[in-house]
Amino acid sequence: MSPSVAVVGPGAIGTTVAAALYEAGRRPRICGRTARDQLELQTSHGRIVVPGPVQTDPAQAGGTVDLVFLAVKATQVEGAAPWLKALCGPDTVVCVLQNGVEQESIVRPYAGAARVIPAVVWFPSEPQPDGSIWLRDEAHVTLPDRPESRVVLDALRGSWCAVELAGDFTSVAWRKLLQNAVAGFMVLTGRRSGMFTRPDIAELALAYLRECLTVARAEGAVLGDDVPQQIVEVFQTSPADMSSSILADREAGRPLEWDIRNGVMQRRGRAHGIATPISDVLVPLLAASSDSPA
């Protein structure tokens, strides 16, 4: 029997997961801030319509579930706390579909007795003007190899969203964080992936990623010297108009996840006595882009 599932936060990531569940024959509860009759995901294989409604009142959540996919940004976790309270029991697993390496420490205070597991999301999905989501590539998720991750495996079994378990989840999570961190350059330039083909931007990105790599290794990640170049090449070979969630938030005037994507590099670097000169410039600029009054 498949686990009962709720998706909290039907944005780009949440809609993608809800669509994968629905296509596999599951009907997740969908919980968010805005009432909607349905969710729509556009893929290379066509459009998937996930029936709603999107529930907006935690008091009407319908009781606890086996699995909660928490797909809100780190800046929205406190706002999602009523949903976690309504949906989580002692046997619930909360799978945090969120950027960064601090998902557990951020979400655990709001999850009660539920078990919280982090995830690394490997799919580019972007909101469209009509309210639908465009999934630009194949979808898969990496989880730590723990017993509670089996609930996520069961929920997504047979779907087109692959799930892999990593024995060294720390290294996987920090590698993805490096990729997310350098995407912060998009906020400061207002440009998309195509800008990384500029030699000066590529050089600066490599220097920043090497700084981040030193921090990641101090945190226990096992990553090779070639990782910075690999990440820059990912941006260089992506469609020139490929965006990122942090740029989309900047364009929409929303708070940015600058702290969990970039501030963490500076914070953890200082804790290990590692110099982070590029972070020391980048982080205040990103913070100002998000939090300044004007």
Rank of each mutant, 00 (worst) to 15 (best):
E164P: 09
L97R: 08
V93P: 12
G131F: 02
C95S: 12
W160C: 12
P124I: 00
A166D: 08
A155E: 10
V187N: 03
P147F: 00
G184N: 05
C95Q: 07
R157N: 13
G190T: 00
P199E: 01
A183D: 09
A86F: 03
K73E: 06
L165H: 05
C212S: 14
G190C: 02
D137E: 15
Q98D: 07
D168Q: 08
R108C: 14
P109G: 03
I117A: 11
V182K: 05
L87P: 14
A111T: 07
N180V: 02
E126W: 10
N180Y: 10
G167F: 02
S132Q: 10
R115I: 02
M195K: 03
F69V: 04
A113R: 11
F123L: 05
E126L: 14
V121E: 09
C88W: 01
R198F: 11
A166F: 03
A80I: 02
D154R: 09
V72Q: 03
H140T: 10
P127L: 00
G194V: 00
G89K: 01
E164L: 12
S149A: 13
V77K: 02
F196E: 07
D154Y: 04
A207W: 03
V152L: 06
V141I: 13
C212W: 08
R136P: 13
T170I: 05
S193L: 01
P199D: 01
W160I: 03
V141M: 11
G167I: 00
